[in-house]
């Protein structure tokens, strides 16, 4: 059973860090915000359904970008400021500390959705409605967990490389396409579909669209419950891989004594 106190504490600490210095959200939100805004501008007619589609998609892109950048950078930041060694020798597993941060990072990525929503309401003056708010928020919470798990994985993975900032840049935009959040994947060549299917939030996007009342664009329509089940299964796989990666990182760092090197 994970130590929920540690996860909550780390979540709070990350939230306080953000409130103390919120400007660091800018690099994470620039791409999703710009892409969502330009997407809206491309459409010749912007009715409520198009805006809702953009707000939903933009939210996922924002959560992804912030998970990738903030969570990916998480351990590297500790390494830079010299707190990684202290974190490693506390009784709480490092994975639980990073988990709290990753959940916050994915959550605050939703800010993009809020920005797009406000812009849409003020500038385009559309009024958007969710078909089933309860189903919508359940799906959103599960996507949040799934993206947090990806953030955790990236945090551990980036410890092994000095090129984490380059990898972040490489990974950010392709997911905008393969996630299906904005562009239906059936526009992509079919050989690329398996990439989308193994990216958990792809199924979450479909569930969100169903709950919001937007027509589903998935080439494999499995319904709301089916989407969530697949999302759960993929997240469980991510979690297992992440746990293994943290174990490997822990062992390797102790053997090589290179934890503080960057």
């Amino acid at each position: 059973m994970p130590n929920l106190y540690a996860i909550t504490g780390s979540f709070k600490k990350q939230a306080l860090d953000f409130i103390a210095d919120p400007q660091w959200i800018i690099p994470s939100l620039v791409a999703p915000f710009t892409f969502t805004l330009v997407t809206l501008m491309i459409y010749p007619e912007r009715d409520a359904s198009i805006v809702l589609y953009a707000v939903l998609g933009g939210g996922i892109l924002g959560m992804w970008s912030n998970s990738l950048r903030a969570s990916g950078f998480s351990i590297n930041y500790d390494r830079m400021v010299g707190t990684l060694e202290s974190l490693m020798v506390t009784p709480t597993p490092l994975m639980e500390v990073i988990a709290g941060r990753a959940i916050w990072n994915a959550l605050i990525g939703l800010l993009n959705s809020l920005l797009v929503f406000i812009l849409a309401e003020v500038v385009f003056q559309t009024s958007i409605r969710l078909a089933d708010p309860l189903m919508f928020f359940i799906a959103l919470a599960i996507i949040l967990l799934s993206l947090s798990t990806i953030g955790l994985f990236l945090a551990a993975f980036f410890v092994f490389t000095r090129a984490s900032s380059v990898l972040t840049q490489i990974l950010e935009l392709p997911i905008f396409i393969i996630s299906g959040a904005m562009i239906p994947i059936n526009l992509m060549p079919s050989w690329s579909w398996p990439l989308s299917f193994t990216f958990g939030p792809f199924w979450g996007v479909d569930a969100l669209q169903i709950a919001a009342g937007v027509s589903s664009t998935s080439p494999i329509p499995v319904g709301y419950a089916g989407d969530l089940l697949i999302l759960f299964a993929i997240t469980a796989v991510y979690l297992t891989l992440t746990w293994m990666l943290f174990k490997k990182m822990d062992g390797k760092a102790r053997e090589s004594g290179s934890l503080g090197r960057y």
Binding site: V38, I42, P44, L173, F176, I177, M182, I183, L187, M188
Partner: peptide, 12 residues
């Protein structure tokens, strides 16, 4: 991304 988006949007 933007080429596909232009295709999705249709009459641009």
């Amino acid at each position: 991304y933007f080429v596909l988006m232009t295709s999705v949007a249709g009459d641009t």
